[in-house]
Write a protein that binds this DNA or RNA. Sequence first.
DNA 1: CTGAAAGCGCTTACAG
DNA 2: CTGAAAGCGCTTACAG
Lengths: 338, 338
Amino acid sequence: MAKTKATIYNVAMRANVSLATVSRTLNNPEKVKKETRDKVLKVIEDLGYKPNAFARGLASRKSTSVAVMVPDMTRSSIAEMVNGIAIEARKYNYSLIIYVLKDEYHEESEMLKEVVASQADGILYMNDEINEQQYQMLNRIKDDYDVPIVLANTLYPFENKLTTVSIDYHKAGYGITKELIEEGRKNIYMLTTARKYMVNDLKESGYLKAINEAGLEPHIFRTSGDISVNTIHFDELFHDVGKKIDGVIAVRDSIAVSFINSMIAKGRKIPKDISVFGFQNTKYASLSRPKLSCIDIPITEIGVRAMALLKEEIDNGTSKTKYIELPYSIIHRDSTKK
Amino acid sequence: MAKTKATIYNVAMRANVSLATVSRTLNNPEKVKKETRDKVLKVIEDLGYKPNAFARGLASRKSTSVAVMVPDMTRSSIAEMVNGIAIEARKYNYSLIIYVLKDEYHEESEMLKEVVASQADGILYMNDEINEQQYQMLNRIKDDYDVPIVLANTLYPFENKLTTVSIDYHKAGYGITKELIEEGRKNIYMLTTARKYMVNDLKESGYLKAINEAGLEPHIFRTSGDISVNTIHFDELFHDVGKKIDGVIAVRDSIAVSFINSMIAKGRKIPKDISVFGFQNTKYASLSRPKLSCIDIPITEIGVRAMALLKEEIDNGTSKTKYIELPYSIIHRDSTKK
DNA sequence: CTGAAAGCGCTTACAG
DNA sequence: CTGAAAGCGCTTACAG
């Protein structure tokens, strides 16, 4: 039964070469004579030999693995980024170790120590709620242990010490708000999360800028991402000012769709009475009736680029680029007039 | 800057004990006198020492990591299972190495070799498309390398050599079909994927059983998970027999919602004209108008239980249970009459 | 309860 | 281009 795994020693024996030569044909093939190399490769193939990742990691001080730290796998944006990361990591034969962040700061800091102990070659960190404390902790880890860190879709606008791949959420928020203004909307509401997310703050600041420029009154409405909860909030909102609202920017597609459902239940027409924009371009947007107009965020691409940048930092100790801003686009469907 | 990580040697020095004692206070604290232990623990704390995972893995032949093999991170059921796995893994301080499966059989087999080389203590495999070839390969890996494997939400009904955690999809398909029959529906369609998924085949067989028992005519309609594609299919379907369909079982919520949107566009009423059931109870179900009735699958729980079972097999070499069937429930919302 | 020592399976200067 | 040997940082019998 339990076949004992072939070791480098077995390969060396069978191929009549030293351990060093086997190691070289795997890691620096150009340093081995073609003839020898082929002989060794053949034995490796025959034995189904794969180097033990621990021994290799211990000896070389490289792990060919990166730590992927995420707040919550179940959010589709996170899952899609991880997918992008996986696509790119595969090219380099890197493995991905997933760490699901806990709310508690202390736990996160423990987790980071684990990451360091795991000898990850680099860290991919995604957390759209990132706060001062967390940002500084990452900074410290990076400096203390000299491990490259790349933030993916994670913006901390007050400092820029950490390499980042994202989109300009402020500009995106500004852009769609302007579109609504140009449509002639006067009472444009921003539907955002009660909980503070950095990324949502940026969308909000873009919204506010456009609203102020147009001399309109800003309306920030904070609600929950939980549909059963925000439905109640939207009913209350409608009760208070429902007839006046004529435009909406929601920080997530799912919140936009939930809002649409609530308003249609009250007899309002979308987009005739209210134009609605979402953010992300998830499947929710295409399954909504009417289909949702929204900002399309190249989320998989963010993952791909973040991994590529991390790889660059791992290999060179640094990277030319410290900030990659990816373009977004505005998808016009049926919940807005344009 | 770059703080050199403390090693077990540094700890031993500072605490005036041997390496073995440091190792023991971490791994077998009961074998160390309390006094000594406390002294060592203090130094560990002071130095921020974390054992190097590679050295530990190499020496102990245990990795405290498991390989998580998934077909595609972006499917919400997969992401939620991984979340469940992460929750449970955290209890044991296990890390998770993610492998995103490729379509190509050869690549999957290479990946499995990598998994073995990575010294993972066990493998969590989820793939609702699993075929004979893949199943046998897993079997071989398990036998050859003596590594525990647990299938999560992955059914291969023709054999049961591999430990599995899932729900009874056949029964679920049967149950909701019966409900539609009891509602008085006569032309019940099953909307399933063109591509063969094991799990969908089981839903289908349950559907067929109920239909046959009732002496009705079965209608299996194969389409795509892609909304823009299935919308076209549904339009064609409506053109052919649209007026007759009075009940629908879809293998995924998103397919059900897309179908509802298509039918409403043609002027049909849900659930008055057509009752619709989905599968999974995703957010799509709550964001649909009308809200979707569906089978609720305890997907996070499947992840949790699969990880727990794997841990049991890792620790004991085997587990008492070879198959855990979790209960599902039927959620009645507004797309069916009950 | 504690320590000395071998060994896990690799990589990498160093020598030749 | 190739090999002998040290060393990576742990764990684990074995002795005491």
